[in-house]
Amino acid sequence: PSLWSTKEFYVYYVLVAIVVPYMLWSTYYLSSDHLPNYKLYARTLSNGWLFGRKLDNTDAQYREFRHNIPLLAAVAAIYVAISRLIDRFTSTMRDGQLVRDVSARRVFYLVSSAVFMVVISGANVIKILLIVSINYAIAKVGQGARWNPLATWLFNLAVLLFNDQFEGYRYGNISDMLAFLDNHRGLMPRWEIHFKFAMLRMVSFNMDY
C-alpha cells in the first residue's frame, strides 16, 4: 500500500520543508562577501553562474563533475536514444504486450558500459577490471563461507590504502614498456578517488552473494 498519506511521511514532509530551505540559506549566507572572514577564503572562490555569486570549486572530484556536466548530459541523451532504437527494432509483441529481447539488451549494456569505462578511465580500466575480478573471485570461491566477509573487507581496505599510497599506480613504475599507458588516462585520470564508491558496491555484492 502507498505510504504517501501516512503519519510517518507527514513527518518527512515537515522535515524536508524546514531542513532543505535552511541548507540553501546557510550556503547562501556563508558565501556572502559581507562576512568578516570572507576575505580569508575569497581567493579560493571561482566565478559562479547565478546572480554573480562566487562558488567553491577547489574540490577536484566536484570540479571534474561540474566541468563535464555538458558532456555527461550529451552522453546520457545518446544512451537513451540508442536504447530506444534497440527496443524498437528488437522487441516483439506477445499477448498484446511489448517484450524486450533480453539478449539484445545484455549486449547493449555490455558494449555501452565498456565504452563508457574506457572513455572515463582510459587505460586505467585495466586496473579497475583486475580489482573487480579479484573481488568477484573472493565472492565466488568463498560463497557461504565464514571467511568471505573478512577476506572481502581486508582486500578492499588494502586496495583503498594502496590506491592512496601509490596514487592509483603508474604503469611506468611497473615496467618502462607500459609507461605509454600513463598518457591515456581518460576524462577522469584520478580513478582511485571515484573508485571508493565502487568499492562499497563490491563489498555489498560479496556480502549478498
Rank of each mutant, 00 (worst) to 15 (best):
His34Glu: 10
Ala76Phe: 14
Asp208Glu: 11
Leu3Ser: 10
His184Gly: 04
Phe195Val: 02
Tyr79Lys: 04
Asn57Phe: 10
Val80Gln: 09
Gly122Phe: 03
Ala179Ser: 15
Asp182Gln: 08
Arg53Tyr: 05
Trp147Ala: 03
His34Ile: 10
Ala179Trp: 14
Lys196Pro: 00
Arg53Val: 10
Ser175Gly: 07
Asp33Thr: 03
Asn156Arg: 02
Leu129Phe: 15
Trp147Val: 08
Met117Ala: 11
His34Tyr: 14
Glu167Val: 11
Ala137Gln: 07
Glu64Ser: 12
Lys7Pro: 01
Leu178Arg: 04
Gly122Arg: 02
Ser113Tyr: 06
Glu192Trp: 10
Ser26Lys: 10
Arg53Ala: 09
Val141Ile: 14
Glu8Cys: 05
Leu50Val: 15
Glu64Val: 12
Asn47Pro: 02
Ser31Ile: 04
Ala114Arg: 07
Tyr10Asn: 12
Gly142Ser: 03
Val99Asp: 00
Tyr10Ser: 11
Ser5Leu: 14
Asn68Arg: 04
Phe197Gly: 08
Met23Asn: 09
Tyr136Gly: 00
Ala114Asn: 09
Ala151Met: 11
Ala104Ser: 14
Asn156Pro: 01
Asn206Trp: 01
Tyr209Leu: 03
Pro21Leu: 15
Arg84Gly: 00
Glu192Arg: 04
Ala114Val: 15
Glu192Leu: 05
Tyr10Pro: 00
Asp208Trp: 10
Arg88Trp: 09
Arg84Val: 06
Asp101Cys: 11
Arg66Asp: 05
Ser103Tyr: 13
Ile138Thr: 01
Val125Leu: 06
Phe65Met: 14
Arg63Ala: 09
Asn163Gly: 03
Phe51Thr: 06
Asp208Tyr: 09
Arg170Pro: 00
Ile128Phe: 07
Ser26Arg: 05
Phe89Gln: 05
Thr90Val: 12
Phe108Glu: 02
Leu30Asn: 03
Thr44Gln: 04
Ala77Cys: 08
Trp49Ile: 15
Asp182Phe: 04
Tyr12Gln: 09
Asp164Asn: 07
Met202Asn: 01
Phe89Lys: 05
Lys140Gly: 02
Leu157Thr: 07
Val159Tyr: 04
Phe162Lys: 05
Gln165Thr: 08
Thr27Gln: 09
Thr58Pro: 01
Leu181Gly: 02
Val132Pro: 00
Met177Val: 15
Ser32Asp: 04
Leu110Met: 14
Gly96Trp: 00
Asp164Glu: 12
